[in-house]
Amino acid sequence: MFTRIFGKPKQETNALATLDKLNETLEMLEKKEKVLLKKAASEVEKAKEFTRAKNKRAAIQCLKRKRLYEQQVEQLGNFELRIHDQMILLEGAKATTETVDALRTGAAAMKAMQKATNIDDVDKTMDEINEQTENMKQIQEALSAPIGASADFDEDELEAELEELEGAELEEQLLQPATTAPAAPVQVAAGKQPVRPAARKNTEEEDELAALQAEMAL
């Protein structure tokens, strides 16, 4: 267990240390390459000077040294390529290791969560929730039940009384007198005076009163 716990940081430290060492070596090779390129360029300049001085032998010696420097530069270039290749492989391996560790950690966390919440615990929790819900429903029904005098009222009697009230209301509406429609206006022809019923009624009453006075005088 402790090996697994302390192994990962040690491996990561080793990988980082190796990458640092490769970077240092690469920088060293690049510096040497620059120095060799300068020496090769310097031999070319010397060869030119010896050529102007008609010293062919010395000029050829300069070109030979230039070739040697160029060979070393080429060799250093191969070393640099190998180091770059090693660094790429190491960085890829480091990324792969970190990915595998992350996946392993996620799988362990998922396993722990599944272990903590197995199906039996879920079923037990749902049973408790259903039981609490049923208890709350019973409590609400008990609180909403009528108490005191209202609990003694008979629903059938109340419905019968309501039907009597509705029948009495309907009977009262039927007994109310119908409203009389307004009389239609009488169309009177042009040139004729309309007959006045009220004036005729007054004339008849006056005739009856005159007849009664005549009978009393006799």
Rank of each mutant, 00 (worst) to 15 (best):
K64Q: 12
L26Q: 08
A183E: 14
A58D: 12
P146E: 14
I139S: 12
P146S: 14
Q114G: 03
C62W: 05
K115Y: 05
I129S: 01
L165S: 06
D123S: 02
T99Q: 04
E33A: 10
A210G: 06
K38Q: 11
I119G: 00
T105D: 13
E161C: 03
V122P: 00
P146K: 12
Q11R: 15
D123E: 05
F6A: 06
L103I: 10
K56G: 06
P146G: 09
E169Y: 05
A58F: 06
A58R: 11
A181E: 14
D85H: 09
Q138W: 04
M113D: 07
E141W: 04
N202G: 07
N14F: 10
I83K: 01
D121M: 06
A17D: 11
A95F: 00
E205Y: 11
E161S: 09
L103V: 08
A107W: 05
T133G: 03
T117M: 03
A190I: 07
E169N: 05
L143Q: 07
L63Q: 13
D85M: 02
M113W: 03
N14H: 10
S144N: 13
F2P: 00
V35H: 03
E141S: 07
E161N: 10
A190M: 05
N55D: 15
A210K: 14
M28N: 10
T18E: 15
T25D: 12
A40V: 04
V44R: 12
K32M: 05
E171C: 00
D101F: 04
T97I: 01
P182G: 09
K201R: 13
E45Q: 09
D121W: 01
P197Y: 06
K38E: 14
L36M: 06
L22T: 15
A53N: 12
A217N: 10
D156K: 15
A217D: 12
K111M: 00
T117E: 00
V122L: 06
Q114D: 04
A17E: 13
F79K: 08
G191K: 05
L143Y: 03
E204V: 15
L26K: 09
K111Q: 02
A181R: 06
A183P: 15
R67C: 07
K201L: 15
E163T: 09
E74I: 01
L81E: 11
T133C: 01
A112W: 02
K111S: 02
Q213T: 07
K10C: 02
K32L: 08
M126T: 03
I5S: 03
E215C: 03
I139Q: 13
A183T: 10
E98M: 03
L68F: 01
L162Q: 11
E91Q: 13
V122M: 03
E27C: 07
V186M: 08
A40E: 08
A47I: 04
Q138S: 09
Q114Y: 00
E172L: 11
M136K: 14
A41T: 07
Q72R: 07
T18R: 14
A116T: 02
A168I: 08
A178N: 09
S150N: 15
L26W: 02
I5E: 05
S144V: 08
K137C: 01
E215I: 11
